[in-house]
Amino acid sequence: MDKSILEIKNVSKSFKGQMVLKDISFSLQQGTIVGLLGANGAGKSTLMKIIAGLLKQQLGNVQLLQLNPFSEWHGLFNQVGILLEPAIPNYLTGQEFLKQMAILRGEVSVNIAELLKQVGLERAGKKKVNHYSFGMKQRLGLAAALIGKPKFLMLDEPFVGLDPLGVGQLQNILKSMVSKGTTVLLSSHQLAELEPLVDRILFLSQGKITHDLLATEEIDLQKLFKEDNIYAT
């Protein structure tokens, strides 16, 4: 039987009296890639921040690797990789940033050079981050998320700012990790890059999951966005 990595049960969240998430329930199994889609404002970022332990839901339960991410994050820190709007100090080099992240996660023996090579930054590791393009910062944030070979990886818009080579590298990295048992949840508006990668699609609309589809089903993602009145070419 497949092992459940993430369990979301009846989760709701509001801000200033407005419901942002409404009774969300789903689970993710080990060794799968799941795409979280929806319009800006649909609740994706709020849901991902709850999973990352940055926000607390008002109702419902969240279990990540059988721990509560909000109150027990100390038990998850070296098992989970997160890329949510990477905030990287400009005064550090890429190497220095990854070394600091490795120390924080208790992975002092990590091969920084190999991590940089894995994300296509082997020539930029000694440069300060203030000289990085947006796409390079995305790659560096991804490298930080990969430290320690996480059991669960969550990425928000990881394809933004990547050139076609970078997109292909990221797709190959994720496929390799999943083949070794990592579970991946990623949010993206770049449908062409997402579709060939995922095993399953969760579509979020106005705080509710309106579609939960397997990749084996016939999925017209553009149609889903059009039906939600938010897709624009």
Rank of each mutant, 00 (worst) to 15 (best):
E114S: 15
Q57T: 01
G35R: 02
Q206D: 15
V108T: 12
K208S: 14
I103S: 10
N90Y: 12
N40V: 07
Q30L: 02
G53W: 03
R105G: 08
L104V: 10
Q57C: 13
A215P: 06
R139M: 05
G38C: 05
Q30C: 03
K9V: 06
P158I: 05
E85V: 02
M101I: 14
I24Y: 01
A113I: 10
G125D: 01
F134H: 11
G181C: 10
T46W: 09
V160E: 10
K151W: 05
R200V: 07
L121S: 11
E195N: 07
Q58L: 08
D2V: 15
T93A: 09
H74K: 13
V20G: 04
V108M: 11
N61T: 13
N78C: 11
W73F: 14
I8D: 03
K127A: 11
D163G: 09
F225S: 12
P86F: 12
G207A: 06
Q138C: 00
Q100R: 13
R123F: 14
D199R: 07
L115E: 09
R200Y: 07
V178Q: 04
S187N: 09
S25E: 04
G106F: 08
D163Y: 10
V20R: 08
I201G: 05
L84Y: 03
L65F: 04
L83F: 07
P164A: 11
G161C: 12
K126S: 12
L204G: 04
F26D: 01
Q63G: 00
Q30K: 14
L65C: 09
I201F: 15
G31A: 10
M1R: 10
G207C: 05
E227K: 13
K13T: 00
I230Q: 14
Q171I: 15
T46I: 06
S176E: 13
N61F: 10
I88T: 02
L174E: 03
Q57N: 12
D2N: 13
K127Q: 14
D23Y: 01
R105T: 08
V184L: 07
V119G: 07
S27I: 00
I103Q: 11
Q206K: 15
T183R: 01
E217A: 14
Q95P: 00
S12D: 08
E96G: 07
M1D: 10
F134R: 04
G120E: 01
E227Y: 03
F225K: 12
G94D: 05
G43F: 02
R123L: 15
Q95A: 10
N172H: 15
V167E: 07
L221H: 13
G94F: 11
L92T: 05
N229W: 13
L104E: 05
E72N: 08
T183P: 02
K49S: 07
T93S: 14
P86H: 06
P196V: 12
P150I: 08
Q58E: 15
